[in-house]
Amino acid sequence: MRNNHHRRISNEDINKRLSLPADIRLPEGYLEKFAMNSPPFDKPMSRRLRRASLSEIGFGKLETYIKLDKLGEGTYATVFKGRSKLTDNLVALKEIRLEHEEGAPCTAIREVSLLKDLKHANIVTLHDIIHTDKCLTLVFEYLEKDLKQYMDDCGSIMSVHNVKIFLFQLLRGLAYCHKRKVLHRDLKPQNLLINEKGELKLADFGISPHIQLEAQHQGVGCIFYEMITGRPLFPGSTVEDELHLIFRILGTPTEETWPGITTSEEFKTYNFPRYHAEPLVNHAPRIDNDGHDLLSMLLQFEAKRRVSAEDALRHSYFKCFGEQVQTLADTASIFSVKGIQLQKDPGKRSSVHPESSKSSKIEK
């Protein structure tokens, strides 16, 4: 339906809007190899010249990557595990079909243009972009699993200490995005990738900027709750189900808690009963007082009453990490701080089953 409204996107449009990431990570020794034939570096290299030398090295070319197993498939994209012949590192290859449907290039361009400019320890790195007539391939760093798989692997019982480490990293990534006016519209455990060091990174920015009433609450608070309890906070299957569950726990919103809600047509059509808020601790007994306080601040109905990611990072719940985590460089990992490390999760299964340790993806 929405296709009719899209202007047809040509290859030139895509080429105009894409350029290789500014700080593409070259293997050591590669630049020296080309320095002989290239002009002196005393003046800035033109983009065309820079792209030429990068493509000589092998960036922007499909044959630079070996495709391994398929990790997942979505409407527009298929994701493969791969290996770079340049660096020998594992990568995730997200192939976006361009001829399939007109929404795909828009989504792809949005994801690429956002990710090219985001350089942060808690945001997945885009290493390379390959554009052919039929396909746009985004080459991402490879992470072993997503948060959903991580929780499944520990039988949904995560160490409360690890929950705190993951939540802090999620908030760091989001605070960085918000500072750059980028909103991640689809925060869910499948879009949070985790490597074997325990570094958590936001993935999948190719989300349409449309947001509905029921989507307001899919967010950090819900992920925090799911990590601490092992189950989704609002597992509704329809919008009405979902809102029903939200209101049963947080109380049905009133003009006082959410100004303007009572005049919302969508809200009026459902005609919800008047629920009173239940104490969150009834639902999440493993949470301490500081955690409970932070969770309540994250789950406020109204966006302007909800705590921002930046303020949440300074909440007393994270005091045990010490002061140093507050001044980390954007690209520095939380694990660069002495003494911060993951603990063994109480329900963790040993990875005897190949399925449980099976690789992750950059979400469809």
Rank of each mutant, 00 (worst) to 15 (best):
E73P: 01
I340N: 02
F301L: 06
S113F: 02
C135S: 14
L202W: 01
I249G: 04
L114Y: 08
I340V: 15
D186C: 07
K145N: 12
A52K: 15
R180G: 12
E302V: 05
H127T: 03
H244P: 00
S316M: 09
A284Y: 03
D186F: 08
E196P: 01
N282D: 15
I223P: 00
P39F: 09
E256I: 10
N3H: 11
Q169L: 07
L49S: 13
V91S: 03
I123Q: 00
G60I: 03
A284W: 01
L136P: 00
Q326H: 14
K358S: 11
K197S: 11
D23Q: 10
V139P: 00
E199G: 03
K81D: 07
I261T: 09
M45K: 10
E266I: 14
E199N: 13
A215L: 05
R349Y: 14
K344G: 06
F321V: 10
N89S: 05
A329C: 11
R231E: 12
L313Q: 12
D42L: 09
K181Q: 14
L213I: 08
H161P: 00
H292R: 06
I130W: 04
K148G: 09
H283S: 11
D117S: 11
A175Y: 05
Q169D: 06
H131L: 15
G155Q: 15
T331R: 06
D330G: 04
L118H: 01
P189R: 09
H283L: 14
L26W: 09
N11F: 13
Q326V: 07
I24C: 05
P209A: 10
N4S: 14
R314C: 09
G322P: 02
I123T: 03
L192A: 07
S237N: 15
I109M: 13
K70N: 06
P346A: 15
P273L: 12
I165E: 01
I123L: 02
L295G: 03
T132N: 06
Q216E: 04
A52P: 00
P39R: 11
K361A: 11
K348R: 15
S84N: 04
R50C: 05
A332L: 04
L294C: 07
E256A: 15
T125L: 03
S38Y: 04
S38G: 07
T327H: 14
T132M: 08
I194A: 04
K116H: 11
M158V: 15
A175F: 08
S19V: 07
V352K: 13
L342T: 07
S359A: 15
C320M: 14
R7M: 13
K197D: 09
D186W: 06
V124H: 01
D241Q: 13
S10Y: 12
G60Y: 05
K358I: 07
I287A: 06
R180W: 13
E310C: 02
T75G: 14
K179Q: 15
L126I: 06
D153W: 04
N11R: 15
C177F: 03
S333T: 08
S55V: 05
I362R: 01
H120M: 05
I340E: 05
L138C: 10
D290W: 07
